[in-house]
Design a binder for these strands. Structure first.
Lengths: 204, 204
DNA sequence: TTGACACATGACATTGTGTCATTTAAAATA
DNA sequence: TATTTTAAATGACACAATGTCATGTGTCAA
């Protein structure tokens, strides 16, 4: 997390810094991003950056989580909207991710994140469902919303694995969309085919 | 690919360099690995490294592909062994990957690869199945081996997606094994649960 | 013997990181 | 208001890494 001094910053200065960091992380993936570029764009001295953040990663994950939290909320809203149909909720989340326009700031930020998913980055995306991360998952909110009637599960344990499966497939479809520069329509079509396969089972 | 001079190197010198590179890429993930460390361990001058490789990445992907090709061969052998049962073949591949001992050189190399899967790295692991990569996929070998009788598919198109699904789930199980430091047994158990869910379908 | 060529070498310019002693500003206290 | 204390800002610096390039070395064919 950023240090206290960051949050105490006057809004204008903080926003300028955030925009500068976003621009740098949109230009190149985390590992190639440079603090020097960020401070140059934000017009702050190098030492100040370290007054606000531990390091590059600290700034990056702050931005990534901020972006992602918004979508988590929308996902939970979708679950409500579709009476707990988890497939429909994932489909809506997937579509939401496709909406990002190439011209918008967020597009390249997201693209760089997805094409360079370290385990830590994937964690940010999936921790909402992660049994093991008690403090950041939102299973208590999600689980009761879900309509388990239509899911083909025997025990509570299997439910967790179902989420894991849907998540990995959704995630890979998203990565592929960006790596292959697919159109919205093409990406959605592939996604739906795979979701239907998941539903009906791969085996006779 | 490494340059010609690399392959012309006397075997001893080349092996020493390979071992040095492997050691460095086992120590830290690609983005943090340093050429300086490699040349120090290999006892070659810095300029020589650039005589042999384009850069760090060039050396890395050479080693990664070398390691992975061996396992691809074993995967195809498994497919034969189980009369084209793709689930059994994937299970054997998964088990093979679990066999890596913590003490062995390969363990940390693999771990660093899996916990920092950029799109390029994932490509190395999955290109054997990739329709779009005509020169490196091995679908011509694999497809005829597969027993499609027991697969729940309507068209040829769906077959490709089935592979995609199994691959993503297998891959994530592998990543999780390393990120959570799971035992061989625990990892295998989870993997089997998810493969069975895939077979029977997630939906009633 | 000489010239051509491939390869080897390490110093160098450049770019980046994280730290720290010092300065500046703001807030608390007398 | 004057003084002290605390927090924040600043940029020079030490260190590490990258990729290049001018120069050196050795081999082989003419």
């Amino acid at each position: 997390m950023p240090k206290l001094t960051f949050f105490n910053l006057p809004e204008m200065k903080r926003n300028k810094l955030i925009r500068a960091a976003e621009a740098e992380f949109s230009r190149v993936p985390l590992s190639q991003a440079s603090i020097s570029n960020i401070v140059k764009a934000a017009e702050i001295p190098r030492g100040s950056f370290y007054q606000y953040f531990e390091n590059k990663e600290d700034a990056y994950y702050f931005l990534l989580e901020e972006q992602w939290n918004k979508r988590q909320d929308k996902f939970i809203a979708s679950l409500n909207k579709y009476n707990g149909d988890i497939f429909e909720a994932f489909k809506e989340l997937f579509q939401l991710m496709l909406e990002e326009k190439k011209t918008e700031d967020g597009y390249n930020f997201l693209k760089n994140a997805l094409l360079n998913v370290t385990h830590e980055i994937e964690d940010v995306f999936t921790r909402i469902f992660d049994e093991k991360q008690i403090d950041t998952n939102r299973l208590k909110e999600i689980t009761p919303l879900i309509n388990k009637e239509c899911l083909n599960i025997s025990g509570e344990d299997e439910f967790y694995h179902i989420i894991q499966i849907i998540t990995s497939v959704t995630f890979r479809n998203l990565v592929e969309k960006y790596s292959r520069n697919m159109s919205k329509e093409e990406a959605l079509e592939n996604f739906i085919i795979e979701m239907n396969l998941l539903k009906k089972g791969l085996y006779k």
